[in-house]
Design a protein around this nucleic acid. Sequence first.
DNA 1: CGTTCAATTGAATAATCTCAATAGCCGTGG
DNA 2: CCACGGCTATTGAGATTATTCAATTGAACG
Lengths: 238, 238
Amino acid sequence: MFEDPFLRKFEFAGNLSEDERTALQLLTLTRRPVPARRDIAESETGDRVYLVMSGFACRYKTLSGGNRRIVSFVLPGDLCYMHDSGAFARDLRVGTLTQCSVVDIPRARLEELIGLHPGISRAIWWVTLRELSRAREWIVNDTRPADRRLAHILCELFVCLRGIGMADEHGFDLPVSQTDLADALGISAVHINRVVQALRTRGRISWSNDRVTIPDVQGLKAFAEFDPAYLCLDGFGP
Amino acid sequence: MFEDPFLRKFEFAGNLSEDERTALQLLTLTRRPVPARRDIAESETGDRVYLVMSGFACRYKTLSGGNRRIVSFVLPGDLCYMHDSGAFARDLRVGTLTQCSVVDIPRARLEELIGLHPGISRAIWWVTLRELSRAREWIVNDTRPADRRLAHILCELFVCLRGIGMADEHGFDLPVSQTDLADALGISAVHINRVVQALRTRGRISWSNDRVTIPDVQGLKAFAEFDPAYLCLDGFGP
DNA sequence: CGTTCAATTGAATAATCTCAATAGCCGTGG
DNA sequence: CCACGGCTATTGAGATTATTCAATTGAACG
């Protein structure tokens, strides 16, 4: 990738100054590999936020029955635990789905940058509002039947991955299991399989070897009632 | 009520100075009544946020089939459209469920206060993170069976209403229709009725004449797996 | 080759939806 | 006072959707 997915994502909130870009890049020098299926937060390391530089991860909660519900995907360039410190959402965890490369950032350091750089402050605010908008869209999505719900999530992944240069015109790599998708949809592993097959049979998607192909992107978006407005890719608007 | 639900809610984020309290109270002098089942946003009135001072409202989106999905309730003291300006969530509306009393606030005026008063700025940030935390909990809730899901929402309403002095030890007024609840749960009107009856039959709740009574609050919370941590009522934590 | 995990299939059960239809309440207009 | 319409709650029945349990298949790995 020609540059940080991190910077690339932040620029959606508006242009950053050269100072700000440099300050952000200085944060990302030391990276830590995290294997698949692990929690990103290390124990006993104090109050930190985590920046995912590569790989797929997710925010999730575990229900009392042992079920996992994924509430959002974490893609390269996403900050984690930024909104969940202290009293907020003690039970919300961030776990990897594939191997990831992660930057550990002391929260105080990030807050310092926020205080110093208006562009960074604005970007953090934008990221937060975007997460809120995204979460609400997921709630709405949960009222759709499972096939449209899956289609919607695939559209979201497609658009988000395109935004960071990780998808081409017709598809993207999706190195996660059907079970992971099931947990993101809130349905069972058996059912997601049947839903995937239904979308395949009708030619809406193909998915093999960790590669999702969407022959007719507009068609899938229409099927899913997907409107990318909630992803706020136009920044704060006019 | 002995004071604004607005101020009362803001104080959860931390204490406000006397100046800040006064500034906020000055915002709420002129109120506008909104009948039930109307959208709160007026047309053509410029960029505003809306503060609900009394009544029940909701944030919702409408699906292409005409279904409404409520993504959160709006209770007295809640700000609306604060996070949804411009490019964000064009399709997210705020509508009243009962008659409401609403304060129209020019967005610029609120932003001015945010710039001037650190306590207000912190409160706005807290409200935002709380909405995010709440939305994610609703996603998780959508994976529960309908009876537990309803129980969870009732617990949330109970705790939130208690926080603003609108619930007593064992229940609260809930002047909304079963259909409204159904739209908040993402289930049909027929099904919510059966779920309500199931909870009634098992003695978990009683609900008549717009009044919900919970004989065993702890029991209902356990049934719903309800943990109030996500509501961040302890402010920003230690 | 055995192990393991992901994907797949079948079959029975449970949850939820849709389509009707009925009953109760409340306010309006006569 | 009473009939009417409109909205909410309720009930029944059949069709769909999704779940669970169990078993099978396939690919990857050592």
